[in-house]
Design a protein around this nucleic acid. Structure first.
Lengths: 192, 192
DNA sequence: GCGGTGATTGCACTCGGTGGCATCACCGTA
DNA sequence: TACGGTGATGCCACCGAGTGCAATCACCGC
């Protein structure tokens, strides 16, 4: 018989998310979380680097997947298309399943400046990953970095559209549509 | 005769930046800052919302300037060109003067994850400002948001090039060059 | 000289996060 | 069966950021 109930990390996460939904992120203390999970405050910090991390720990690290997908695009593919293809790939695995959970989490994050900060850090990491993958495809450094941020922006704009109440499309479709919108607006009549 | 030395806010900022350069952001406590400035710890938080804010308080709020400049672009101008024109305008005023100070500050920020987080928040605000200005020009919402982030990325990639040791160009020139790099890479041979 | 206003101060408090160490379950091995 | 290693958990003391509240003081207008 185990001295401790199993899956401490999972219990902490569950308790934390429930409390964040109930009373918001800032008003929830780590002590409350560990109390609900039946664990010690110190134990929380053995599983999560800080209070914010428990929110983002759930999402799979799809960065490697994205890198591979970008690398596998046919040579000569436009960098933005390649980057977006990588994101579509990752979106299929990580997002399409649990719309409900994602919406609840999104609300928690949207209500907390602290969590939005952390989300921006994640986005920056994603943009850097994409930029590195594009550089491997011989895209010049500055263009690769800008394209990385553009692809990330497309992804999150699409995710917001996907989270909208009346939405019927898949995330992949919305990513493609957002890329198209951007190209149409900026590559369009005036430029070139 | 004044009971207090004047310009408490300026003295705090000066003391803080000096200490951040000397020993880094995380290893500097607010107590050290106020001690050097000859003020009380509590007073620090009357002038700055938090420890990070003292780093960013210096930079002028050029967001209004950017909005106006974007609004003044000739009708039919490509959204990215309009956004970048706004940034070039702001860059001229805020950056071109003090290369040295900017470089030192850049190093402090680059060495501190906490400060980079805050910088990302500022960038997000900038992107939102640009997106709003573009929507005023009847650019559709999603495209405006993506273009906002792209313009911000162009700006900061250019700023990094501008901060590079051997650089001889102005920030404005580098912004234009980075936009050109991006367009060449992604609007180029494969697309369209 | 007097009252109002705003900047500064002092104090006590909460909370996030860390360091160090003890405890205990579990596992492989002798 | 005993033993030692490993990793998860618990406990305690501590630091530093940030807040709430009230007191103090300079300055300004009257």
């Amino acid at each position: 018989m185990a001295r401790w109930e199993p899956d401490a990390s999972g219990r902490l996460r569950e308790a934390a998310l429930a409390l964040f939904v109930e009373q918001g992120f800032e008003k929830t203390t780590v002590a409350q979380i560990t109390e609900r999970a039946g664990l010690n405050r110190r134990t929380f910090f053995h599983h999560f680097a800080d209070k914010r991390e428990v929110v983002f720990a759930g999402q799979a690290d799809s960065e490697e997947l994205i890198t591979i997908e970008i690398r596998n695009q046919p040579p000569g593919t436009d960098p933005l298309d390649a980057a977006v293809a990588g994101l579509v790939q990752a979106a299929g695995l990580a997002y399409e399943q649990f719309r409900e959970g994602a919406v609840a989490l999104g609300r928690v994050i949207a209500a907390s400046p602290e969590l939005q900060e952390r989300e921006l850090v994640k986005r920056a990491g994603l943009a850097a990953t994409i930029a590195a993958a594009l550089r491997d495809r011989r895209v010049p450094g500055p263009a690769a970095e800008v394209a990385g941020w553009t692809a990330v922006a497309i992804f999150f704009v699409a995710r917001n559209r996907w989270n909208q109440p009346g939405n019927e499309h898949t995330l992949g479709e919305l990513i493609a549509a957002t890329l198209e919108d951007f190209r149409h607006a900026t590559g369009g009549p005036a430029a070139l």
